[in-house]
Design a protein around this nucleic acid. Structure first.
Length: 403
RNA sequence: CGGGGUGUAGUUCAUCGGUAGAACGCUCGCUUUGGGAGCGAGAAGUAGCAGGUCCAAUUCCUGUCACCCCGACCA
């Protein structure tokens, strides 16, 4: 991609009232645009990062045996009445009325998934059912905040599973936990598993995935010997006063739930077991906040000049800068492209300083500089997360560059 | 919803009763090219919106809207 053609250009300064680091850098770098509080466009660079994240999630979900689908966002009131959540979830749901019919914008998809599943589920031989999608969630948060971290509209990957028995559900539940840890690991994030209360939905504890970060709005606790961290709601008063238990601020990036058979009973999601008896399916749900992850990555990986994307999610792999020497840069740009390397070439006629500053802000992992100062055929290679650069021939770079 | 803060050019800000100014960005020209270049010329604003006070309001008052921060909330 030629930077001169990329929409939009960087901003010299972030809007004054933005405090969150993710908002500042993502807005300045041209990754996102704010429509209103809690509602953002993903601009081309931001979309590329989102797609990289999504693809990693997709690969790991597929590896658990799950299949991808896509569910609607406009839901009829009737489906929500089946579980009683039209009333119970009133606060978070965006509701609308048209031609005397009530609708809601999706804030989650349990009901929709279960409706699809029950139409096609007849026998235990149809189980397990493991389906997921990546789509928008609408939630009427009392207060949208922290840039892209808490929006009213955001992308989420949600996976749902139905099983013939509780054991089978549990087995898959732990399999998804492992898959989630793999996802966060691939993203370069050090996520921890946190036990949390299941609320009114399940007696089992649920598990959250949290990334320790100063800007986190949750507090999580850990003591030597515990299998998992704990979130605040399941901590006892004694534990809260125990100085041997450490606490950290953290951002939730995913969670996994075991609903059991409550939902299946309410919506009659049943099957015939191997003895011919009717049984209700065991249900689990598993979410990862895709859009939020973009923000989390910026909160974790940045310095005072801009973003430092991990290789796995960087919008491009190489940021090519030429200072003069346009002809040679163009040739290099073509060669990088033909090797399948994703490259952003800052081909603008602006000062070297401007190009360097923008490269630091955008945060592509490898910066390649071509200039008169270097001999012909020679480039300067610098990693965004390192101070030192090295000079080598362009041929050598092409031969050895891997991501 | 309660508390606090901010709304003036694309952006960051100044002006704080007498009808709007800078920097950056943008356009054109020339000169530049290793850390946000220089010179010259230029375009760009219903001062969030609505009332009120005043001879006169961007400025003071009231209301309202939007955004940011703290809190409540977060399947």
């Amino acid at each position: 991609m030629r930077y001169s053609k990329l929409f939009p250009k960087t901003l010299r300064e972030a809007p004054a009232d933005e405090v969150a680091i993710n908002a500042k850098y993502l807005l300045r770098g041209g990754f996102i645009d704010k429509l209103m509080a809690g509602s953002y466009s993903l601009l081309p660079l931001g979309r590329r990062v989102e797609q990289k994240i999504e693809q990693i999630v997709r690969e790991e979900m597929n590896r658990t045996g799950a299949q991808e689908m896509l569910m609607p966002l406009l839901h009829p009131k009737e489906i929500w009445n089946e579980t009683g959540r039209w009333e119970k979830a009133d606060e978070v749901m965006y509701k609308l009325q048209k031609s005397e019919k009530d609708f809601a914008l999706s804030f989650t998809h349990e009901e929709i998934l279960l409706d699809v599943a029950r139409k096609h589920l007849a026998t235990y031989r149809d189980l397990p059912i493991r389906l997921y999608h990546v789509s928008t969630k609408f939630r009427s948060e009392l207060r949208a905040k922290s840039g892209i971290l808490r929006g009213r509209e955001f992308l989420m990957k949600d996976l749902y599973s139905l099983h013939a028995s509780q054991d089978e559900m549990n087995d898959y539940y732990w399999k998804v936990r492992d898959a989630y840890l793999k996802v966060f690991d691939r993203l370069g994030l050090d996520a921890v598993v946190v036990e949390a209360a299941g609320g009114v939905f399940t007696d089992d504890h649920t598990h959250e995935f949290q990334v320790v970060a100063e800007s986190g709005e949750d507090t999580i606790y850990y003591k030597e010997g515990w299998e998992y961290w704990k979130n605040r709601e399941i901590m006892s008063d004694d534990e809260l006063n125990d100085t041997s238990i450490k606490s950290e601020k953290a951002i939730e990036v995913g969670n996994i739930f075991r609903y059991g058979i409550d939902y299946s009973k309410k919506m009659d999601v049943s099957f015939t077991d191997n003895s011919g008896e009717k049984q209700f399916a065991w249900f689990g749900a598993y979410g990862i906040g895709i859009t939020r992850l973009i923000g989390v990555l910026v909160e974790i990986f940045h310095d005072d000049r801009g973003i430092i994307w991990p290789e796995a999610v960087a919008p491009y792999k190489v940021h090519l800068i030429n200072i003069g020497n346009e002809e040679y840069a163009q040739k290099a740009y073509r060669q990088l492209g033909s090797k399948g390397i994703e490259v952003l070439w800052d081909d603008r006629d602006v000062s070297a300083g401007t190009k360097f500053a923008d490269a630091d802000l955008i945060g592509i992992p490898t910066r390649l500089v071509i200039s008169d100062k270097l001999g012909g055929g020679t480039v300067e290679v610098k990693k965004r997360n390192e101070q030192e650069s090295r000079i080598e021939t362009f041929e050598a770079f092409l031969d050895t560059f891997t991501v």
